[in-house]
Design a protein around this nucleic acid. Sequence first.
DNA 1: GATGAATGAGTTTTCATTCAT
DNA 2: CATGAATGAAAACTCATTCAT
Lengths: 233, 233, 233, 233
Amino acid sequence: MNRTRFENLDEQKKERLLDSAAEEFAEHGYEGASLNKILERAGMSKSSLYHYFEDKADLFMSLTERSVAILMCEIGGFDPQALTAESYWPVLEGRVRRALELSNRNTWYVKLGRMMLRFRSLPKGMDRSNRLYRAARSFVEATLLRGQELGVVRTDLPQSLMVDSAMALGEAIDAWMLTHWDDMTPEERLAMVGVNFELFRRLLAAPSEVSSAASPGGGFRAGRGGREDFKKS
Amino acid sequence: MNRTRFENLDEQKKERLLDSAAEEFAEHGYEGASLNKILERAGMSKSSLYHYFEDKADLFMSLTERSVAILMCEIGGFDPQALTAESYWPVLEGRVRRALELSNRNTWYVKLGRMMLRFRSLPKGMDRSNRLYRAARSFVEATLLRGQELGVVRTDLPQSLMVDSAMALGEAIDAWMLTHWDDMTPEERLAMVGVNFELFRRLLAAPSEVSSAASPGGGFRAGRGGREDFKKS
Amino acid sequence: MNRTRFENLDEQKKERLLDSAAEEFAEHGYEGASLNKILERAGMSKSSLYHYFEDKADLFMSLTERSVAILMCEIGGFDPQALTAESYWPVLEGRVRRALELSNRNTWYVKLGRMMLRFRSLPKGMDRSNRLYRAARSFVEATLLRGQELGVVRTDLPQSLMVDSAMALGEAIDAWMLTHWDDMTPEERLAMVGVNFELFRRLLAAPSEVSSAASPGGGFRAGRGGREDFKKS
Amino acid sequence: MNRTRFENLDEQKKERLLDSAAEEFAEHGYEGASLNKILERAGMSKSSLYHYFEDKADLFMSLTERSVAILMCEIGGFDPQALTAESYWPVLEGRVRRALELSNRNTWYVKLGRMMLRFRSLPKGMDRSNRLYRAARSFVEATLLRGQELGVVRTDLPQSLMVDSAMALGEAIDAWMLTHWDDMTPEERLAMVGVNFELFRRLLAAPSEVSSAASPGGGFRAGRGGREDFKKS
DNA sequence: GATGAATGAGTTTTCATTCAT
DNA sequence: CATGAATGAAAACTCATTCAT
């Protein structure tokens, strides 16, 4: 709530708290997370936390809000309306590539990703107000809508089903990347972008579009040969 | 653990406990779930629980084990090796249809579905032993593998990524159906099976297969025409 | 709530808990009372308390309920309908005397008395359900009503005002007795009964009755001479 | 403590703080009251409070002190020594009437009244220093003493008992008036002054005085006739 | 003179689990 | 077999108070 209070705080302390919180929430979910442990890791006193946030829910929501702000700024920050039929898929893929590069350097985004996996299920009353998820959803929705206007995204599915499916697929891919993160070299990771992105196209592209769907950038070149590396779940 | 003890229990009591547990785990996740509340709802004494199960984790795992047994028996109960190139997709779609019909009558499956959404993240050490998820995974894996043998499932993706994506999509569709359940007539629900199934095919089918992918029973309007989309992907 | 659980408890432990609770509530009021301190004094574990009672409020109400049961049984346990015009005041005075004798021997009643002083003001929602106060009130009300039927209690005041005044006076006298308890010998205490009782008659008696109001038993004999003893506070 | 500091404060801020404090103390008692909530309602910073007052106890005592000052000035502000046998009761009744009129317009007095109900029991060491209660008490005491000198107040009771009883009755009547406030017309309210005042006389008047106790202004029906009740008591 | 930051000890309540019977 | 009693540890959250600026 009292956002300014927290914003005026020493940058280092802020970071330690948010980092600790993100980690705890990511690992144990909202209900399973322990404020005690968050505070212990952050080296902060219990009452200080309550000086800055109203309660556990407020901390959680502030965290997600902040995250989404950063994320949107760095990754999603482009106007769907500016897309054209030609640029649509390439631009999106570029964004995905960008996100991956960021994650490559900054563990924050990894934690954030793991948090998102938890977001579908929150104590009732909170999932409505879960801003990160809502923001991400509406961003995806807008983007898909623009794609439909341009004729590059299919129009034969219920909107919400399409958004849900896309987000689920995105989460799954994220999770997979996270899980196999350490088994891949940075180059392999980048190569996966092409693979992953093609999945989205399969799911969402309009019929006419599909034929030209040779993944434009980077592509999936690690192809055939490298497959077995990943057999281990 | 002490399987026999529990199996010898009055059928009604068993059901009440498992139902209550499934609901609680589904709603709050593993860590957020409260044994107290499970027992309260089931009308069972605390000590009884510990007579039958070793601890919270044991209850959870027994529950998932049992669930998967039922699920496999009623839905997945078919031998992937018996599938042929022609029967592959139709049989699978039949199974999906079957699952939908079951959900129609039995809330158990709904709870089960919600539980599965939680399964990706469990306290460390437990996710290894999460049998429901593993069982479901390995079943899906086997089925996809068979599909690859038959040449109807793509082979250009890491196994685990394909399984993850498929399951995520399945969950998303499940959740969507649950959410929109009351907005649809029974006929519409059945019609959706075709739609949903087509999503799976898009994601997983081998290039050669795609053109012949007429969803057999589904009343999915935009259907037919769009089939050749996948020729090149 | 789960009354039986508590009733089946070792008599000594019960007493220690209730004693400790009564003392704490009496000293600090409902909101100011600390469960920690109650438990510490009673030598009971925190979770045990919650095994027997639902929460702080439940403990408090159970305590008052129990108290009122004992009190009514030993002091108020007489049928107002059985009173006659002649016996009315003497019987009541006898009861007051009885209560004083009990208090003389049992510290429980003293604590109970101090608790009652707090009862008018409780967290909103609880004062309604405060059974001790309500029980005491309705007992007083019934008794006064009977007195009016017999023509020995005035009828020129609003019922509720009369009851409130009577109870307030009763509390004040109780408190006074409690405060000066240790300054008086048991005989002096008994002597005060006459004095105190006369105050009630003054307040409540019907005009016709007052003239005959020479305090029947024990009377106020300590009279003139002994007055200065009590000047302090 | 630091009286001057506080007095130099903006009048509006002062009022808001005292109002908020009075409300909180009245509702939850001294121990149950929360400084945090008082400050929140008053829109004042925590450190400001500690600039003006030493601690919670100091705030409470300053509040009561101030209250009693106002109260004495507006209601009790008369010299008991100036009373005569004839004017004694009429003057007192006038004052009661005055208090009622004030309450009619100013919620402050209502809060004050509710606070007083709490004053009998404070954390040990504080009840001694509770100035409002002591001031009120000593004022009542002085007034009763003067009444005894004039022969219009009974002398057969311990001082402190008489004071306690009188104050308790006053509080009860106050509370009753508060509760039934909205059920009465302004005229009825004024009429009740006579009724209420007669209760005080019954309790406190000397035997010789009772016969002449015509409540001067009160429209109290049953009034007159019942006066000689007290001749003998 | 005035305030936001910070906190340790406290609050009530719930947790999963053990044990004696 | 079955269960009520009992608990230590931890949960989220609030308290009155201090201190550096």
